[in-house]
Amino acid sequence: MVRAGVRAILAADPDIEVVGEAANGRDAVELVRRHRPAVALLDIRMPELDGLGAADEIRRVAPETAVLIMTTFDEDAYVTRALHGGASGFLLKTGDPRELLLGVRAAAEGGAYLSPPVAHRVIRQLGGPRLQQEIAAREHVDALSDREREVLALVGAGLSNAEIARRLHVVEGTVKAYVSAVLGRLGVKNRVQAAILAYEAGLVERS
């Protein structure tokens, strides 16, 4: 039932083609080996080989395929292992279905996507209060304009582009332009790295 729901959401987007579906991790790896998709969407809890193990295998046999992890569980251990293993995103099944499409698109374009609750946990866990990190982060952030710092802080808080647009009373396209500019000026690859930098620089409240 879960796979059917995911397929229906993805199939409704004309830019996305579902090329395979597997009931267990080993079959998922074989499908990736055969079809070489842009993105593989994996559930953590799969029989024979769980999603994290399948992600490790996919990185080995098809490194060009981006991996998204989807689960109802958001424990830190899962998040940390998934991201350290090279996953391009971590989605919660309890999240907005639109996050699934956003995550697939981001991963296909070489980016990363985390559900907002997961993003907050990653920031808290990986952005440790180390003095050297804080100094370096602040030096990076000081190069941004006031508006860019404001956008970075909201990215760090786990807000989506649409949520940032509503908060700043601008159109979403303007936010996308600011986010792209911030990533470029900070020299980071994706929103996750930018969020961690925002946390280290003190733009996000520590909890």
Rank of each mutant, 00 (worst) to 15 (best):
A194I: 10
L183M: 12
G103F: 00
E163Q: 14
G20F: 03
N161M: 13
G86K: 02
R206W: 00
M1Q: 09
L131R: 01
A157S: 15
A153D: 10
T174P: 00
A181V: 03
A62G: 12
Q125T: 04
E163R: 10
L91M: 04
S88F: 02
I9D: 02
A194M: 11
E57Y: 04
R59A: 15
K189M: 03
S160K: 14
E205D: 14
P63W: 07
Q125N: 09
V170D: 15
D142P: 06
I196F: 02
H169Y: 04
R149L: 13
L68R: 06
H140Q: 11
V118T: 06
V118F: 05
S145N: 12
I164H: 01
A4I: 10
L114S: 10
L114A: 03
L183I: 10
E139G: 07
R166Q: 11
L83F: 12
R149P: 02
A82N: 07
G156M: 05
A66H: 07
P117C: 02
Y113A: 09
M1H: 08
Q133D: 12
S207T: 06
A40T: 14
R3T: 03
E99S: 13
D142K: 15
D56L: 04
L102G: 03
L197W: 04
P116L: 09
V29K: 08
E200M: 11
Y199Q: 08
R206A: 09
P116E: 10
R149Y: 15
N161W: 06
R26F: 04
P47L: 11
R191G: 12
S180K: 11
D27Y: 00
R7M: 03
Q133S: 08
L10F: 11
K189T: 08
G111Q: 07
L41H: 11
G25R: 04
P14Y: 02
G20C: 09
D146P: 03
V67K: 05
R185V: 01
P117I: 02
V2G: 01
V61E: 15
V170Q: 14
R34P: 05
V155Y: 09
A194S: 11
A201P: 07
R36M: 13
E30K: 05
I135V: 14
A28K: 08
R121N: 07
L114F: 04
E172Y: 03
E109F: 00
N190F: 00
Q133A: 12
G103P: 06
V188C: 11
A77V: 15
V155G: 08
L152S: 07
A194P: 08
H35E: 09
L41F: 14
L131C: 00
E30N: 10
L100H: 10
G111R: 07
G202H: 07
L154A: 13
A136T: 05
L126N: 08
E64L: 03
A201V: 08
V19C: 00
G53Q: 14
E17S: 14
T72H: 09
R60D: 15
E48A: 10
S145R: 10
Q132L: 08
A4R: 14
N24D: 15
A62H: 08
A201I: 04
D142H: 14
E200T: 12
A55T: 05
